[in-house]
Design a protein around this nucleic acid. Structure first.
Length: 302
DNA sequence: ATGGTACCCTGAGAGC
DNA sequence: TGCTCTCAGGGTACCA
């Protein structure tokens, strides 16, 4: 599920419920996800007010009144959903220390539940579900967030104002790595994943195998290709955010509704279909780069 | 330094 | 129906 547009969609869905609310109780149902939870995870959350919810790259960040930041990453299969506060009887059944009985198969993967008491409005629960457990949560002091290993080396936010032809050409200068790998590198641009890299390369008619350092003219200026790529990255991400992200397999948004940008894919998961660029007679091929599928048109992407 | 590969984990879908 | 195999949106440790 989660590349930048999906995480942004989740952030926008959670913010109205989480911002300003107090965390009254936390159910942490296992000791680890991708990484172990901090040993004092629950204690540092309970009683805190959530002052703001934001996103950096593919991370969700909840600023707490204590000065901690709750850092959340969805990995491959993580999702949040918003539910009503439990009834009194269920609350009793799920009292601290009580064994949690999953009522459905998917519920086995509800790993964290935040019980929230909003300043005004009705109490709610925020439920984190993650079958593959590649996601994680941790707590980091606000003051040290930028220097934390998760964030110290993160690259540019692609929807900010800096991403343009000259920035891209400079960032990729001298690099022989394929464009596909360079765009997936979170240290350069933060937030792109496999889907949107494929889509951006298709839109800009650039081969995923092309060396990243070739986006310059002989005179050393950013090439037209660099401009197309920067624009393609911005446009595909902006359109995907507007569509509520892409929904593969099951669920997506926090209210259970689905993003619909997957219907706009031109390359990703379209192996064998004809290229949608006007006048192009090619079709979409699938290759493997860095262990992941790349979808592209070998005719018009050069 | 840079670039590939294996791996963490579970579930879905294809093919037999 | 059920088995086996492949693949999946991310990121990191380790190798050449």
């Amino acid at each position: 599920m989660p590349e930048l547009p999906e995480v942004e969609t989740v952030c926008r869905g959670l913010a109205p419920v989480m911002e300003g609310a107090r965390i009254t109780r936390v159910e942490q149902r296992r000791a680890d996800l991708r990484f172990p939870f901090p040993t004092d995870f629950v204690a540092r959350l309970e009683g805190q007010r959530i002052e703001a919810l934001g996103r950096r790259a593919k991370y969700l960040l909840a600023d707490l009144s204590s000065g901690d930041v709750l850092v959340m990453h969805l990995g491959m299969s993580g999702s949040f959903r918003i539910a009503e506060a439990p009834s009194v009887s269920i609350a009793a059944q799920e009292a601290p220390g009580a064994f949690h009985h999953p009522r459905s198969k998917n519920e086995r993967h509800d790993h964290v539940v935040l019980h929230l008491e909003p300043a005004d409005g009705v109490p709610a629960r925020i439920i984190y579900n993650d079958p593959r457990r590649f996601g994680f949560m941790t707590l980091v002091a606000r003051a040290g967030l930028e220097s934390h290993p998760f964030f110290a080396h993160l690259g540019l936010e692609p929807l900010g104002n800096e991403l343009d032809a000259s920035w891209l050409a400079k960032a990729f200068a001298g690099r022989t790595t394929p464009l596909k790998a360079a765009l997936l590198d979170q240290k350069v641009i933060a937030g792109l994943g496999n889907i949107y890299v494929c889509e951006a390369l298709w839109r800009s008619r650039l081969s995923p195998m092309r060396a990243a350092g070739t986006l310059v003219t002989k005179a050393g200026r950013p090439s037209a290709a660099a401009g197309r790529l920067a624009e393609a990255i911005r446009s595909v991400l902006a359109e995907a955010v507007a569509a509520g992200g892409s929904t593969l397999r099951d669920h997506m948004k926090t209210d259970g509704s689905l993003g619909y940008f997957q219907h706009s894919f031109a390359a990703y998961d379209r192996e064998g279909t004809s290229c949608r660029h006007p006048g192009c007679r090619g079709s979409i091929a699938r290759i493997v780069q860095s262990g992941r599928s790349t979808f592209y048109c070998g005719v018009c992407q050069r």
